[in-house]
Measured scan of single mutants.
Amino acid sequence: TDVTFHVNGRNLHLKGADEELLRRIEELIRRGADIEELEKAVKEWEK
């Protein structure tokens, strides 16, 4: 799945995201995470 999140005026584009990653990103956004936290979560998922 390709999806782009718009967070605090910045874009986080995910290519090939699975349901697990999407749920994790949505949860972080609900908690008020900043873009750096979201990018870190994506990097951890990519490993």
Rank of each mutant, 00 (worst) to 15 (best):
T1K: 14
T1E: 08
T1F: 15
D2E: 08
D2H: 05
V3K: 11
T4M: 07
T4L: 05
F5D: 05
F5A: 04
F5L: 14
F5W: 02
F5T: 04
H6R: 09
V7F: 05
V7M: 03
V7G: 01
V7I: 09
V7P: 03
N8T: 02
G9A: 01
G9F: 03
G9D: 05
R10L: 09
N11F: 15
L12D: 00
H13D: 03
H13I: 14
H13A: 05
H13V: 15
L14G: 00
L14N: 00
K15E: 04
K15Y: 08
K15I: 09
K15H: 09
K15F: 09
G16H: 08
G16T: 06
G16R: 10
G16M: 06
A17R: 02
A17E: 02
D18L: 02
E19V: 13
E19M: 13
E20F: 15
L21Y: 01
L21E: 01
L22E: 01
L22R: 05
L22T: 05
R23I: 07
R23A: 09
R24L: 10
I25T: 01
I25V: 09
E26C: 15
E26H: 13
E26A: 14
E27I: 12
E27R: 13
L28W: 08
L28R: 04
L28P: 00
L28S: 04
L28F: 08
L28V: 01
I29E: 00
I29G: 01
I29N: 01
I29Y: 09
R30M: 10
R30W: 11
R31T: 07
R31V: 06
R31Y: 10
A33E: 06
A33R: 06
D34C: 06
D34N: 08
D34V: 08
D34R: 06
I35T: 02
E36D: 11
E36F: 08
E37N: 06
E37C: 07
E37W: 06
E37H: 08
E37P: 02
L38G: 00
E39D: 05
E39P: 00
E39A: 06
K40E: 13
K40Q: 12
K40L: 14
A41F: 14
A41V: 12
V42H: 03
V42F: 03
K43S: 12
K43H: 11
K43F: 13
E44G: 09
E44F: 12
E44A: 12
W45E: 03
E46M: 13
E46Y: 15
K47A: 11
